[in-house]
């Protein structure tokens, strides 16, 4: 019985959202606002149990690690974000977290640039590796704006556009698939899980 009621609630809310396809209406607005509230409310106890208790309450009050009062006070400064005169105080917790960028520079340089560059310079032993090489270089040059795209150079960078169009086409094809899949998931829920029509 509980399962039926639970599914019924889920199905009704699903239909409330779908009703927007016909036109904006109170049912959709109700569901939309409910979603925002539940999503935010959901995070609060989880953060309290999984972050506040183990990293603030327990070490300070139960284990006597009083040094952690300092970062806790820095964390509280977030609250001043919405005040007119003291909002600058909220920069301190942001700044403390932002420091990690120092580690990100060398590591992301390695993973996003160097490894990709290395793999763009593999021996050209067949037509595909040749195409990949030409495509990569022409696109990189296409985005190099310090030299006018004219003459032979312009023609070469133009090749990059064609490669990009194929790439965007592939992304578009995949995007269509993704969006349709999400709808399939909802229809499977209503027809399968709730109505039991899909076996």
């Amino acid at each position: 019985m509980l399962e039926f009621i639970s599914n019924l609630v889920a199905v009704l809310l699903t239909l409330f959202i779908f009703s927007f396809l016909y036109k904006d209406n109170p049912f959709y607005r109700f569901a939309e606002h409910l979603l925002v509230g539940v999503s935010m409310g959901y995070a609060i106890p989880l953060v309290y149990i999984n972050a506040f208790i183990p990293f603030v309450y327990r070490p300070i009050f139960l284990e006597g690690n009083f040094w952690l009062i300092i970062p806790s006070c820095i964390g509280i400064l977030y609250i001043f974000r919405f005040t007119r005169n003291l909002s600058w105080l909220s920069r301190y917790p942001i700044a403390f977290g932002m420091g990690i960028v120092g580690m990100g520079v060398p590591m992301s340089m390695h993973s996003s640039v160097l490894v990709q560059m290395r793999n763009a310079m593999l021996p050209i032993d067949n037509i595909n590796t040749l195409l990949i090489f030409i495509g990569t270089v022409s696109i990189l040059l296409y985005f190099y704006f310090s030299k006018p795209h004219k003459g032979l150079y312009g023609k070469f960078t133009n090749i990059g556009i064609w490669f990009m169009m194929v790439g965007f086409g592939a992304s578009f094809g995949y995007t269509v698939m993704a969006r349709i899949s999400l709808l399939i998931g909802r229809v499977q829920f209503i027809l399968g899980d709730f109505l039991g029509l899909i076996k």
Partner: peptide, 10 residues
Amino acid sequence: VPNLAAKRGI
């Protein structure tokens, strides 16, 4: 092939 080249460049 072409998609990989495009995405690598970008």
